[in-house]
């Protein structure tokens, strides 16, 4: 019943030279818009301090300076980090890579996926984007989330992966 052919480690399919699928080109802009909205709200909050009488100038200026730094990071960072993210669909698994300073590649075999979910925030919908979430069994961080896919891509990935996962379960 149980066969166990010997496999040379070097013969296994590796991940070098794979064509990584990029995320949707509008995703960077969507991230910037989302940050811009939050930054604007914070800026409005700080400007409300103008109505406080007898407030020394220095802390307010410091707050604005901090906000400016945060804004600069929030505008530049998506351009750097989104370029690093990508995924590859293979016959039996999906790989997802991310990270600029801490880089990681996550692999999920289709026969371990329990269910698949797509979701989108209002901003993402405005840009025609969606997120795909893959759930495996187990507690801590038992799921993989791929943000910034095109709506169509997310939907077709969902159908494709569900199909693969279902086929794998039937074989068990």
């Amino acid at each position: 019943m149980f066969e166990n052919p010997e496999i040379a480690l070097d013969d296994l399919p590796d991940t070098d030279g794979l064509d990584w699928e990029r995320l949707h080109p509008l995703y960077t802009r969507a991230l910037r818009v989302a940050s811009a909205i939050i930054l604007t709200i914070i800026a409005l909050g700080i400007s409300a301090l103008n109505f406080v009488p007898n407030l020394p100038l220095a802390p307010v200026v410091a707050l604005y300076a901090l906000l400016a730094i945060a804004a600069a990071v929030a505008m530049i960072w998506p351009g750097v980090s989104v370029r690093r993210r990508g995924y590859v669909l293979r016959e039996k698994d999906i790989l997802f890579r991310r990270g600029v300073i801490w880089q990681s590649v996550t692999a999920i075999p289709f026969n371990r996926i329990q269910h698949v979910e797509t979701s989108s925030t209002p901003i993402e919908r405005k840009f025609g984007l969606a997120a795909l979430q893959l759930f495996t069994a187990g507690g801590s961080g038992g799921d993989l989330r791929i943000d910034g896919l095109g709506e169509d891509a997310a939907e077709s990935l969902r159908v494709f992966i569900l199909d693969k996962a279902g086929a794998a379960i039937e074989h068990d």
């Binding site: 990270g99 300073i101 801490w102 880089q103 990681s104 590649v105 996550t106 692999a107 999920i108 075999p109 371990r112 495996t136 069994a137 187990g138 038992g142 993989l144």
Partner: peptide, 13 residues
């Protein structure tokens, strides 16, 4: 195993 991750910090790279 349910899923695997290989990760590297800048220094590890």
């Amino acid at each position: 195993v349910q899923r695997v991750t290989v990760s590297q910090s800048r220094y590890q790279r």
